[in-house]
Simulated assay, not measured.
Amino acid sequence: MNALLKVIGIATLVGVLSSCGFHLRGAPSLPENVNTVVIESARAHAPLARALDSRLNIYGLASASGEGAKQTSENINIYLLPEKLDRQLLSVYPSGQVAEYDLIYVVRYRVSFPNKQPLMAQFEVVRDYQDDPDQVLAKSRELDLMLDEMRAEAADIIIRRLSSQAVAALDESE
């Protein structure tokens, strides 16, 4: 009886998920003629460029970065503009010191697909950050870890957007 309930539950879940259009995401779909994603940045050794390079490898996409990267007509070229980190005050302690704020990581980049016009893109990654003046060293390390996490998320967003931007570039040329 218990096994029958499990089978019915799984069948119902599959039916509901498939009827709403849900499907698992695989690797980002890019044009077949693309061999490599070339990463360049306005700042040498930019942390976002390093994060993007490592995330591309996780997604199974070939990457090349820096000035040694060869730009060819078969590559997607991503040029990362300088990153920006803003803070928006959320609350203060009775003493007037900042207690909590939003970290707003702004990413701007230009992507060029083979034989297409470059596309500009921008997005934000936002995190809530609680400051503690009594734990300055620990909070400094936490902020560094949070920034690394935000860069990894930004790299994932860029990679996921590549497929939709590729479709937009193809539609634009037609």
Rank of each mutant, 00 (worst) to 15 (best):
N33E: 13
I8N: 02
C20M: 11
P28F: 02
F22M: 06
A11M: 04
T36M: 13
S18L: 01
L17T: 02
L13Q: 02
I8G: 04
T12H: 03
V14E: 00
C20P: 00
S18M: 00
S19Q: 06
A27F: 05
G9S: 14
T36F: 11
R25H: 09
H23Q: 15
E32H: 15
G15R: 06
V34L: 11
G9M: 11
G21K: 05
T36L: 09
G15C: 07
G21F: 04
S29E: 10
G21N: 05
H23M: 13
T36K: 14
S18R: 03
I10W: 11
V14K: 08
G26S: 10
G15A: 04
L17K: 04
P28E: 01
V34E: 12
T36V: 13
T36C: 12
L17E: 01
V34A: 07
S19C: 07
H23S: 15
N33K: 15
T12E: 00
N35K: 15
V37Y: 08
V37C: 10
G26N: 12
I10Q: 07
L13P: 01
L30W: 09
P28I: 01
L13T: 05
A11Q: 05
I10V: 13
C20S: 07
P28C: 03
L13D: 00
F22I: 02
G9I: 13
V34Y: 12
G26A: 06
T36I: 08
H23G: 15
G15M: 06
F22L: 08
V16R: 00
L30H: 12
P31M: 09
V14D: 01
S29Y: 11
V34C: 08
V37I: 14
T12W: 08
A27G: 12
S18Q: 01
F22V: 03
G9F: 14
G15K: 06
T36Q: 14
L30M: 07
V34R: 15
I10G: 08
T12Y: 06
G9Y: 07
I10K: 11
G21E: 04
T12R: 05
L13V: 04
C20A: 01
A27Q: 14
I8L: 12
I10T: 07
T12I: 04
V37H: 10
N33G: 10
N35P: 07
R25W: 00
G9V: 13
T12G: 01
S19M: 09
A27R: 14
L17P: 03
G26F: 05
L30F: 07
L24D: 09
V37P: 08
A27N: 09
G21M: 06
G15E: 00
L17H: 06
L13C: 05
S19A: 13
L13F: 11
G15D: 01
C20H: 04
N33S: 13
